[in-house]
Design a protein around this nucleic acid. Structure first.
Lengths: 188, 188
DNA sequence: TACGTGATGACAGTGACTGACATCGAGTGT
DNA sequence: ACACTCGATGTCAGTCACTGTCATCACGTA
């Protein structure tokens, strides 16, 4: 057995989600999170840049999944179809994770600071998407607009998937939501 | 002459923008802002909820302008046309203010915390837009998607307007950007 | 066996933000 | 004139997020 219990980072994330759920984000101190994880406050800040970041450990993976899908799409595909493929690929990350997503989202929407962090993560996702589209030869402002539209669909679709019963897969919800966006922007 | 210099709130906002521009957001303390405005730190927090909010005094006005335009649109108008009218109305707030907008935006994009605040203000704008569209009878998820698309156009259009020389009016840029979004989502 | 390394602990500090109470000039009524 | 209220501000003590610095100590390696 090593000197320390393994997976300090994961223990901190789990302790934080528990405490934020039980007592609320603002009422929880970093010292409490660290204590529940069997660590000190100083060590918390060695693993996470701030008190909010501990809930967003998976955002890099989501962005990479999106970017990979855009990169892998056939060169001939139109931006909107590339977007559809990316939404489909990203949805794969959430299968079997609806319960956890609900728990985490409930904490986030209950606090403005956490919502801010969520929004900047999505903004970073949008920037990465736009950049990847540009590398495919999509010009501005089409690249940025496609990326923003994609994130809009993801946001709205994610909320609907969370709110739904267990019937529909996330990928299906995303496809329906993208179709709705197309209908709206077409003036229908 | 009154007991205090008038417009304490405005003085704080101007002092903050100056100091954030000169030394950066993080390097500026609230005590410094208050001192330059001839007030104390405690009084700063009576006018603004936190160190970021001092840059966002105009966001309520922007949201109201958007909402008013949506409310005033003819009942028969399609959501996407309502959106176009709202973007046009909102652009009116920025005429003759390009220099100030540039200065403020430069400060905001230079700091992640300020960017987070900007994003949640735009998110609040999107929520208000969606709510107003729903009152017009637009169903979900069309209402939320239209609102998100509108904010996306505003974001992209605003950046382009800022980056542009003085040639085009903001309203014109917004119209062009909305047309680009339509083209992209149509698969063109 | 000595030494370097990496994760952690200990501790002091800064600055954002809050709560409680004091101050004082201006208006208001008598 | 006088008392009385009121609103904007000042003062002060306190909490907590976050940082810099140095110490510790098991583990691997030469």
């Amino acid at each position: 057995m090593g000197r320390w219990e393994p997976n300090a980072r994961g223990r901190l994330a789990e302790a934080a989600l528990q405490l934020y759920s039980e007592h609320g984000y603002e009422q929880t101190t970093v010292a409490e999170i660290a204590r529940r994880a069997g660590l000190t406050e100083r060590t918390f800040f060695r693993h996470y840049a701030d008190k909010r970041e501990v809930l967003f450990g998976g955002s890099d993976e989501l962005r990479e999944r999106f970017v990979q899908a855009v990169t892998d799409a056939p060169p001939s595909a139109a931006p909107i179809d590339v977007l559809a493929a990316a939404l489909d690929a990203a949805s794969g990350l959430f299968t079997e994770r609806r319960a956890h997503a609900r728990r985490r989202q409930a904490v986030i929407v209950a606090n403005a600071e956490l919502l801010e962090r969520e929004l900047i993560k999505l903004s970073s996702l949008s920037a990465a998407l736009a950049d990847t589209l540009r590398r495919r030869g999509v010009a501005e402002p089409a690249a940025s607009l496609t990326a923003e539209a994609g994130v809009a669909v993801f946001k709205v679709g994610f909320e609907r998937w969370i709110a739904d019963a267990e019937t529909r897969e996330m990928a299906q919800v995303m496809r329906e939501t993208l179709d709705e966006l197309k209908a709206v922007t077409a003036g229908g």
